[in-house]
Every structure is written in C-alpha cells, then in structure tokens.
Design a protein around this nucleic acid. Structure first.
Length: 500
RNA sequence: GCCCCGUUCGUCUAGGGGUUAGGACGCAGGAUUUUCAUUCCUGUAACACGGGUUCGAUUCCCGUACGGGGUACCA
C-alpha cells in the first residue's frame, strides 16, 4: 500500500510550488488507493511563524487536497508535528552514533565561520574533520568530559570517502554521487532538535512512507539520505524518490519566490494570508477570485502532462490520468495568463447557482443586493465575460447600481439631434410594456423599429449605454429584464436628461 | 569555485533516427453574435551551439554555452 506525505515547514504562507508538490502526492495516493499524510516540519524554531500551520491546513482544505492523516487529521503514525517527536530523533541519533555512522562535533558556529572565511571552499568532511573539535579526534574520555561539562555539540553524519552513491529517481533516472565530495551533514543540532536530514529519514521510515515526492532542491542531499537509510539498516524499505522540477518566476531569473506575487501583481499563494508582525499580508488565489478547481487544474499541468491533448481535468480525471513518468524534467515558468484562462473556463462551466454563492460575499462587501435569484441572473449574464470572480461585481457593477461612467465617444456618435424624441418614444413604449421580459421586449422593440423606420444600429447601442454605460456587456433585453422595468425606465430617462 | 539536474514556438508542453515537428495559452486576422464576451476557423512562432555515430540526426553519444538547484547547527 502506497503512503506519501506532504511535509511543509510552517514558516509563512504556503508557496504555490509547495501546493503543486502536495497535489502530486495527493493524486498518486488517491490513484493507488494509498494514504496521503500531512507532516509539519518545524524543527527550525527560529523560523517558526505562528498561524502558518493553520494556514497550510486551511489552504489544503480550500483546494480539496485533504490529507488522510496528519496534523489536524489524526492517524496511527503520530505525532505528525516534528517538534512533538523530539525524543524520537534523539534516540535515533544515538543509535547512529553507536553504529559508528555519526560523531559528536563541538565546533561552535563562530569557529566554523572562521574556517569558511580563512579556508577557501571549506567543507566539513573526511579531509578536514581531523583538524576539528569532534569525537573522532578526541579520546573517549575527552569526549565524555566535554559532554559532561554541558558543552554545546551537534551530531554529524560520518561520510566515508571512496564510494559511489546511487540515487534512483523516478523522474530523472539514476544519479550518482561521489561520497568524497559530500560533507558531514549536521543531523542533530545543539538546541536538541534534529535537522531536516535526520528528521525526514526517521519519520519517513517510521511513518511507512513508500514514495518521496518533493522539490528538486532536495536532489543533492538525497545522497546523504541514502547513506542514512543504510546507516540505520533500512535500505530495503527505503522509499522511492521523485524530484519535481521547480516553478520559475514568470520573467527574469530564478525560482518563483514569495515576493514575486507583489512584484508581478499575481497571487503565488493558495489562500489569503493575514500576515503577522514579521510576515506581511498577501492575497491568495482565493482572494484574487480563482475557483480552487481551476488552480488545481492549472498546477497539475505545470510540469505534468496527461499523454494526450486534454487540458481541462476534474480532480477525478487527474487522479485517473496522473503518472510520475509523465512529469517533466525541466523547470516551468509560472504563466499567470494561462492560470486566468483556466479560471475563465471553470467559471463558464460552473452552474449559476454555484456561481451565485461565490458572488454573494463579493456583492455584500460592496453593499449590493444579495438575493440568490438575482445573483444567479448576474451569473448567467456575466459568466461568459469574466475571468476572475470579482469581475462579476466590478465589470458587471451596472447590474447592481446606476451607471457611473458613460461611453461618451459612442454617445456623441449615436445621440443625434433627431434621435432624442425617438428615444423618448421608445422609453414610453417600454414603460407600458407588459410583461417586461426579454422575449416580449425584443419582439415589441423590433415591431416598434419597423413602425418608426428606425434602424437597430441607431437605437440599440443607446439602449445599451443607457443601461450599462458601456458598449460591452450582456444582450440589451436580458439586461433590461434583469434590471426590471422601474430601474430600466429610470436609466433610459436619465440618459435623455443627460443629453437634453 | 565545486557537485547535481536540465535545454522543442514568447509561455506550458507532445513527439521522436527519415514527421508538413502536434496541441494549449498569448498575439493577429476572419466567421457567428446588430455590443462585448463566448464559440468556430485561419495565421504567427521552436528542436541552444559544435563535434561525433549513422545512408540519414531535432531525436543517440561527447563537449561547449546557457538556465536551474545545492554547497547552513534553513527546510
């Protein structure tokens, strides 16, 4: 049975690259009938951001990528928060020490900094460790003494030179590393917490993880991880690795970072983040007006392809079609235009009743009417012409409140001296129209045009501008019906007065 | 610097020893809609470079260039 994990650090809002990692893990688990768990990797106490854990859980729920186990979800392999597993790591670090695969090191951060600045390309490894303060150089009693005196220490992995380490990656194939080039990574920090390297191996083993799907930034340290599995004697149950290509910023250099959201005017986080004293607030895909299904679809195709030309996928279709083999090797630039296209597609395909629910809070925030029937009408009239949810109340504001700005250019062309009385006549005709619905109105206006000898192109644009102020928008008669007779007539008269 | 990964239209990608190198976004044009949008059609544009291997390489191999990642008592 497959078991996969998403293991973010609670250091702030969840990055969109992390969301994609979570998604791929989730898809694999669902497809294979396995388990998807959420583990919180909070071993760096200095980077801990309050609220980040809740944010991660909230975001996963919004996206519909809900873990089967983990912090906030229960499960038999807990605790799932690494700070709650402190003693476990200590125990395993000691085990590694006993087996001779690790050693105590007493060098202070300052001493190491000094080494780095005086020795070019300094690296703590087989070639330098004999000159440093560690239990490999100290006698047993000396080491004991340092420990007993309560001197700060770390535990480092003892990497022996001279061998080739194979990392078999599901996406990249076999990758070889020379052990002599690897450093003696710190496994256990002087504050009593493990580093990522120790914690992730111990946890993945204890939690029965079968596949590690994570970002490419972990590929270089995977050699160390293989060494750890060997050191613990867990090589035969070592999980399979799949290192995902990174998501790059839309333009310029480097991977997409948290600050790029503000820089490029687009969200890079799933949901809104209120911010803290140290981390500023940011808008997420939800606040920007994206449907979670659209975000999922967009992200799924950013680095993975189904093997055919399909682009629109429901979550169930993704689960069915997903495969690690079809994950791309190269980094993908974050294409916000494409993300918006997906959202537009999803809005078009969403039922009016559902859209009305999304429009409701947006309308309420603007003090607009929020009755469901009307919002469904707004959805029906606008869904083919919006990209983001807020467009319903912004682009389509005139469905909720009087026209704020008239397209004066069109007006000056169409509102001729002769048209005034004719427009007034039409207004009067509509005022007496019953029932005031689109179908009846269209028939009546057509008959009226026939009778008066007015061309559609002379009168319809004016009707439209009277109601919406702009030449863009839903069909005129649909708009009039949505507005209702009173409001429509009021707007027509307002235009007459404006041009009088 | 050293180590690792990568490189097909502007972007996301398919493909693969002999193809008109396919799709999507974007952009441009057209049709439909007496608006706009939707929808449909058309166009635009790519195999980083140099050596091999081969009858033939965009595809395989080796270099180079470029891009990305790593090189912390961060994850």
């Amino acid at each position: 049975m497959i078991r996969v994990r998403f293991a973010p650090s609670p250091t702030g809002a969840l990055h969109i690259g992390g969301v994609r990692t979570a998604l791929y893990n989730y898809l694999l688990a669902r497809q294979k009938g396995g388990t998807f768990l959420l583990r919180i990797e909070d071993t760096d106490q200095t980077r801990y951001v309050p609220g980040a854990e809740d944010y991660i859980i909230r975001s996963l729920r919004w996206l519909g990528i809900v873990p089967d186990e983990g912090v906030g979800f229960g499960g038999d392999y807990g605790p799932y928060r690494q700070s709650d597993r402190k003693e476990i790591y200590q125990e395993y670090a000691l085990k590694l020490l006993e087996r001779g695969h690790a050693y105590y090191a007493f060098d202070t951060p300052e001493e190491l900094d000094a080494q780095r600045s005086s020795v070019e390309n300094f690296i703590y490894n087989h070639s330098t460790r004999q000159g440093l303060k560690n239990s490999l150089n100290f006698s047993e009693s000396e080491t004991r003494a340092w420990l007993d005196q309560g001197k700060p220490y770390v535990i480092r992995l003892k990497v022996e030179p001279g061998r080739s380490i194979l990392v078999s990656d599901l996406i990249r194939g076999d990758v070889h590393f020379q052990s002599g080039e690897l450093d003696d990574k710190v496994l256990f920090k002087s504050d009593g917490m493990p580093t990522y390297h120790l914690a992730n191996i111990v946890d993945d083993h204890l939690m029965g993880i079968t596949h590690v799907i994570r970002g490419e930034e972990w590929l270089p340290s995977t050699a160390h991880h293989v060494l750890l599995y060997e050191g613990f004697g867990w090589k035969d149950t070592m999980p399979a690795f799949a290192h995902l290509p990174l998501i790059l910023r839309p333009e310029g250099h480097g991977k997409l970072s948290k600050r790029d959201g503000a820089k490029f005017g687009m969200p890079v986080f799933p949901t809104d983040w209120q911010g803290t004293d140290t981390v500023e607030a940011v808008q997420g895909f939800d606040g920007a007006g994206f449907l979670p299904e659209a975000v999922i679809n967009f992200l799924a195709l950013l680095g993975w392809h189904p093997g055919d030309d399909r682009e629109i996928f429901s979550i169930n279709e993704l689960i069915e079609s997903f495969s690690i083999e079809n994950i791309a090797k190269s980094g993908a630039r974050f294409d916000y235009e494409k993300a918006k296209w997906f959202n537009q597609k999803y809005i078009q395909a969403t039922d009016n009743a559902v859209l009305a629910k999304h429009i409701q809070p947006l309308a309420a925030a603007k003090g607009y009417r929020t009755d469901d029937n009307f919002l469904q009408t707004v959805a029906a009239l606008m869904k083919e012409r919006v990209t983001l949810l807020p467009d319903f109340v912004e682009t389509g504001y005139y469905l909720f409140e009087p026209v704020k700005e008239y397209d004066t250019e069109t007006l000056s062309k169409k509102w001729t001296p002769a048209i005034g009385p004719i427009f007034a006549d039409l207004t009067q005709m509509l005022e007496n129209l019953e029932p005031f619905d689109a179908l009846n109105m269209e028939a009546s206006v057509k008959a009226w045009m026939q009778e008066k000898g007015v061309k559609p192109g002379d009168i319809l644009p004016l009707l439209r501008i009277a109601m919406a102020g702009t030449m863009k928008g839903p069909a005129v008669f649909d708009m009039a019906e949505a507005l209702g007779k009173t409001e429509t007539i009021e707007r027509l008269k307002r235009l007459i007065n404006r041009n009088a």
